[in-house]
Design a binder for these strands. Structure first.
Lengths: 229, 229
DNA sequence: ATGAAAACAGGCACTGTTGCCGGTTTCTTT
DNA sequence: AAAGAAACCGGCAACAGTGCCTGTTTTCAT
């Protein structure tokens, strides 16, 4: 079931570029440099922010020319769009890798805590740093938002539908399960943003609290806000 | 006590510019256009992000020339620094205004919930939107970070020290109180960031849960993670 | 009132970035 | 093998943004 779930989710998030494995050498070369460009773009994003995602920087990092770059991505926004797809795909991939590796042999009662821990680790990746940059930039850049918002929406929907299929034991308390997801996601996201200010020690404290809350929601110790009224 | 606290915190966060009320008309004029420039810069920040915070945009918005702009802020970073100070000050100000207004007549047991609600509202301001932009930009812009990080640190310290003085009844469980602060802050921050994707309904659900957790920490229903080992 | 100083205006040179285009090399097809 | 296509290269004009600099007007001190 595990690998099935992973495959389904990854397929749903797969950028169209990589959908079909290339056969011709030319296409292979093409997708390879395409990927190199996107990876370089992510580096730019992480190191210098969305404003630092410049065509010549990216071209320079890959070693290729700006002309090649233009061949694959006509405009800067085309590149950004590809980066968006790639980042969402990798985000789900890295979480699933971690979660499915962690979950082997874990008891059902602690699945949520394991998931929360894996989720927190998935935010420590350079892909997520790039995601943050894109997410914030999309708020003030309508062009980017036109690409980003649908991808984010799709990511959210795929996540939810897969959770429904993969955790049928939660069916009776599905609202609570969704709430846990949103809660952990929000808390971890905010924690990551505030980390530079509050420091590691306080981050660890809050993380423990979040996990505790998750466990209590699982044990129904906390009244279910989704049920209450 | 309330107004005393407000005054102390605001004084501690006050940008040096506004520390002494101007007497000369020239200084009055100066600080006035200075403020107009900073406000225009915030508008730029909110509408177009940190990359859109350009000297000519700001000058154009205020109606004055780029020369005038250069007179007050020699470089773009000088303006950004002033914006940072202003934003932190306003952030604390708007929270205190809201909190002290809400707290009148509230029972002691619900003070935390009232504070959490006020905190959430204080994130819905355009100043906080500007703060987000600066916060994220500072991660990849060392120059900006050199200004931003100390300000953020100072904000955090002022906040903590004032909480210590203003809520002596929490002295015995001070670690828990600090944890509540960090927890609410993280959850609300993350919630704000994820709002465009998850939508208002789910945001409201998580908000309810956060408040519930705060209440339980107050009632010692949740084991204190700060105490546990 | 008058010189000094501060607030303000507008222009100039410089840099970096974008989109595009003509030309070259490498691969594919037939 | 030869034509055609796809990958790749380097340069061009256009433009926006920054910092600085020279003036001009307004306010202050004496």
């Amino acid at each position: 079931m595990a690998t099935t779930m992973q495959q389904r989710m990854l397929d749903a998030m797969l950028p169209s570029d990589l959908a079909v494995p290339p056969e011709r050498w030319q296409q292979q070369k093409s997708t390879r440099t395409r990927l190199r460009l996107v990876e370089a773009a992510i580096d730019c994003l992480v190191e210098q922010g969305y404003a630092g995602l410049t065509t010549q920087q990216v071209a320079e990092r890959t070693g290729s020319s700006r002309g090649a770059m233009h061949h694959h991505f006509a405009t800067r926004m085309d590149l950004a769009a590809a980066v968006v797809e790639h980042v969402f795909y990798q985000r789900m991939r890295s979480f699933l890798d971690d979660y499915l590796r962690s979950v082997t042999g874990a008891k059902d009662t602690s699945l949520l805590a394991v998931g929360a821990a894996a989720h927190w680790r998935s935010l420590q990746t350079r892909e997520y740093a790039a995601y943050i940059e894109l997410s914030v930039a999309a708020r003030t850049d309508p062009e980017l938002d036109k690409v980003f918002a649908p991808a984010a929406q799709r990511y959210d929907e795929v996540w939810i539908s897969e959770m429904i299929e993969s955790f049928p034991q939660w069916e009776a308390r599905w609202n609570t399960f969704k709430l846990v997801n949103d809660f952990v996601n929000a808390a971890h996201t905010g924690l990551l943003l505030n980390r530079p200010v509050v420091g590691e020690a306080r981050v660890a404290q809050v993380l423990k609290l979040v996990t505790r809350v998750v466990d209590m929601l699982h044990a129904e110790t906390l009244l279910d806000p989704a049920m209450a009224e």
